[in-house]
Amino acid sequence: MTTAYRAGRDRLWFARSRNYTVFVLRELTSVFVAWSIVFLLMFVDAVLGGGLPEFAALAAQPWMIAINVIALAATVFHTVTFLNLAPKATVVRLDGWRVPAWMIQGGNHSAWALISALIAYFVLRSP
């Protein structure tokens, strides 16, 4: 009885190319994006349910701060790489002229910065 040859699997296939590595990292950062959404929903629940002091105590724990700092960095990486891919996924034409990739990227990043600044203004302003 003979057995078929099976080539070994390379578990680090993505590390052989920068593009693949960035792709896999961006996909893995989705876990931290999901955590950010869960944390925000926990905050909304605490505000609406009257448990804000307990939530604030939990959020002030050093391990929770560390997780949220990592989640922020991962979310920023996810956002930047996602916005940089937009010109490859979307072709914008104006009167037959194709809008260059740098214009699409610049518009995406400018809109992100403007919306972030607007949210920061409303969240951080003093009463």
Rank of each mutant, 00 (worst) to 15 (best):
I119A: 14
A117E: 02
A59C: 05
A111F: 13
T3C: 07
R6S: 00
L12F: 13
R16H: 11
V33W: 10
I104R: 06
T75G: 10
G8Y: 01
L118R: 06
L118E: 10
L48M: 10
W35C: 10
W97P: 02
I37Y: 04
D45V: 08
V44K: 03
L58C: 03
T81M: 10
A7M: 08
R125Y: 15
P53R: 00
S126L: 12
A120V: 09
F43R: 12
A56W: 02
S17N: 13
V44L: 15
L94R: 03
A7E: 15
G50R: 03
L28T: 08
A4V: 02
F23H: 11
F14A: 15
F122Q: 14
S30Y: 04
A86K: 12
V47F: 04
N68E: 10
W102P: 03
H109P: 00
F82E: 05
L58V: 00
G96Y: 04
R9E: 01
E27F: 08
A59R: 15
I65F: 09
W13P: 07
L94N: 04
A60C: 11
H78N: 08
N108K: 02
A57S: 13
A111H: 07
V38R: 07
A15Q: 11
A111E: 12
D10Y: 01
A101F: 11
R16P: 01
N84C: 00
Y20P: 00
S36E: 04
L28S: 09
I67K: 07
R16G: 15
G51P: 01
M1V: 10
S30C: 04
W63K: 14
L40W: 10
F39D: 02
R125M: 14
W35Y: 09
P100A: 12
R16K: 12
W112G: 02
N19Q: 07
L12Y: 13
V44P: 08
F122L: 13
Q105T: 14
R26G: 06
S116V: 13
W112P: 00
R11P: 03
S30H: 03
P127I: 07
M64P: 02
Y20L: 12
V76Q: 01
W102N: 13
M64S: 09
D10C: 12
A73S: 11
W112K: 01
A71C: 09
K88V: 09
R16M: 06
F14H: 10
L124E: 11
M103V: 15
A120W: 10
R16V: 02
N68F: 12
Q61C: 03
F122T: 06
W63H: 14
S30R: 13
R18M: 08
L48S: 03
D45E: 06
S17A: 13
S30D: 03
L83I: 13
A57E: 11
F82M: 11
V123N: 01
Q61G: 08
R26D: 14
E54N: 00
F32A: 05
A101W: 05
A73N: 07
